[in-house]
Design a protein around this nucleic acid. Structure first.
Lengths: 197, 197
DNA sequence: AACATTTCTTGTCCTAGGACAAGTATTTTG
DNA sequence: CAAAATACTTGTCCTAGGACAAGAAATGTT
């Protein structure tokens, strides 16, 4: 059973923008529906056209791509309060390059592309909200690229520990390793080194 | 003197979207104005609030950030037909983290934030065009992060040679080096190695 | 509980690319 | 055109982190 009050409150956290009022939020809410995933469930699969995105209320998911050599590279983690989405696939209408898979039980609010599209054009604040969301995504990507160039694996790991302890606690080492761009043995040694202090 | 015919044609290349018609394009055009920069001129400076972006008709520019340790890291090159913009700064209204500087004489069409904002809300196709543009930017960023993890410096360089020969020809080695995440001596050796074949 | 599977650790050895330094070549500028 | 600045190359030596492999620990499954 959906509890409208809680639902509103949760969605509010996702769609915060000065131009989005209570009435807008209600229209937005009406297009979302709750979906539960179990650990290991695939939210979005590589090769499939993404036709929805998912606001993560609770849980942890991992997005990855398969490299040239067949290796799974973790491109990001989706935490509570974040959105599981393949922006490229959903908005440029091409098959997803990423797979998104749950690392724990996940409670999400799904919204389909067509519904979003309608809201996007009818609620002025929403297009701006989307632009802001993407700006922040670009910011995060830029930061990551730069840290790959300027920081050691140890420092990148420490950043993650500091800013996203939940990932460290809940994600398996090997996925954190590919996210950081090191092998799992290297990351294991990094942890050992940190523990020594 | 601006030649309206050419101007339209050039801008058309930038603002291509099924929902943007000829009348829209004319409205968009009216808000752009031509700016010329000389080699070395700064289009956007770190610390300043970005209040415009620039469609590059002709020329080459470089975007960079200054790392923790004071090193300039090239985050991207802007070629003819691309847009010189600090998305984060202009849309989230914070000071620019990047500096954009011309590597050659550059001919640009500038549009100011307020004008863009107006068009963004009055031309339905433009918000979608912007969303597409950002999706592509995210795609490029993701690709770069992945290549930093999975490819050798040599392969990353060869990719650049193949896809952006203009950068190789016109940008100084040291900027290409920081873009690829290697030192300039390393890149020099990579070039030597390639030349040996 | 017993087995299989996955996750993590550790060892040995190796290599891509960094640090530093000293050139040479090329532009820029007075 | 000469001096200065910048761009690029090359040498020597070194280190972070990869490759591979084998074990230990934890987790899942019947």
């Amino acid at each position: 059973m959906i509890q409208p009050k809680d639902f509103m409150q949760t969605l509010n956290q996702f769609y915060t923008h000065p131009l989005i009022g209570a009435a807008d939020l209600e229209k937005i809410r009406a297009k979302h529906h709750r979906v539960k995933f179990k650990k290991g469930d695939v939210i979005l699969e590589k090769g499939r056209q993404a036709n929805a995105y998912y606001c993560m209320e609770k849980g942890l998911a991992r997005a990855y791509v398969v490299s040239h050599s067949g290796q799974e590279i973790t491109t990001g983690f989706i935490l509570s309060g974040e959105i599981a989405i393949d922006v490229v696939s959903i908005f440029t209408r091409i098959p997803a390059a990423e797979t998104i898979v749950c690392l724990s039980e996940c409670l999400c609010y799904q919204i389909n592309f067509e519904d979003f599209q309608e809201l996007f054009h009818s609620i002025p604040g929403l297009s701006e909200w989307g632009r802001n969301w993407m700006s922040k995504a670009l910011f995060a990507h830029r930061k990551r690229s730069i840290s790959m160039i300027t920081e050691s694996a140890l420092d990148r790991y420490l950043d993650l520990v500091k800013n996203y302890p939940e990932i460290i606690e809940k994600a398996p080492l090997k996925h954190i390793a590919t996210y950081l761009g090191v092998t799992d043995s290297s990351l294991s040694r990094i942890r050992k080194e940190i523990a020594r202090q």
